[in-house]
């Protein structure tokens, strides 16, 4: 755990958490450009915020910043997250061509799951992504989204049930 602000620099955050932050945004939006912008915005906010960081849950602090940056961006753009998934996957290099059948099937399954995620209401999608993509505990998610842990538990459960219905 990070005890003081001097224990960590924004470069550490970029190195250790950059990939997770990118994937958080990518799975919430399905859009690599949005993910790109979010990582940079989060790193700027971390850099400004580290001097005032107080010992506690660093993960909760970081993901609260990440979530707020994401929501601010959504409000600023005043648009719904894109669902243009297949092209985006192509651009990120996830799709290689030609691909063996089993790899291609795996990618298609991934596309289905991503589309199902994008269909979820934001609160449920966010809770599922923070739990299953980022790997946070319920307590860390509660700190990040500033909601009671019981609410987090409920959102994850309902989000998974909705996913299951959409995936068939």
């Amino acid at each position: 755990m990070v005890e003081t602000a001097s224990d960590i620099t924004w470069e550490d955050v970029a190195r250790v958490y950059g990939r997770k932050i990118y994937n958080f945004a990518y799975r919430l939006t399905g859009n690599p450009d949005d993910a790109h912008d979010l990582v940079q915005e989060v790193l700027l906010r971390v850099r400004r915020g580290l001097p005032s960081y107080r010992p506690g849950s660093f993960e909760g602090w970081l993901w609260r910043i990440t979530r707020n940056a994401f929501l601010d961006d959504v409000r600023r753009r005043k648009r719904r997250p894109t669902t243009a998934l297949p092209d985006e996957l192509d651009r990120t290099g996830l799709v290689s061509s030609p691909a063996p059948d089993e790899v291609l099937a795996s990618i298609r399954l991934g596309e289905d799951v991503q589309k199902a995620l994008l269909d979820l209401p934001y609160e449920f999608r966010e809770a599922v992504v923070l739990c299953d993509i980022v790997g946070l505990s319920y307590d860390e998610i509660a700190r990040a989204v500033e909601a009671p842990i019981g609410t987090v538990r409920s959102r994850i459960h309902r989000g998974r049930r909705m996913l299951r219905e959409r995936l068939g």
Partner: peptide
């Protein structure tokens, strides 16, 4: 079983590698 299946589906999504340009960071940083 159904919940485990949904959970596994999300967890099996590949971690997308961060493009180098992302961690190149903006000028301010």
């Amino acid at each position: 079983d159904e919940l485990a299946s949904a959970r596994s589906a999300v967890r099996s999504l590949p971690m997308v590698e961060v493009p180098a340009s992302v961690l190149g960071l903006p000028d301010e940083v």
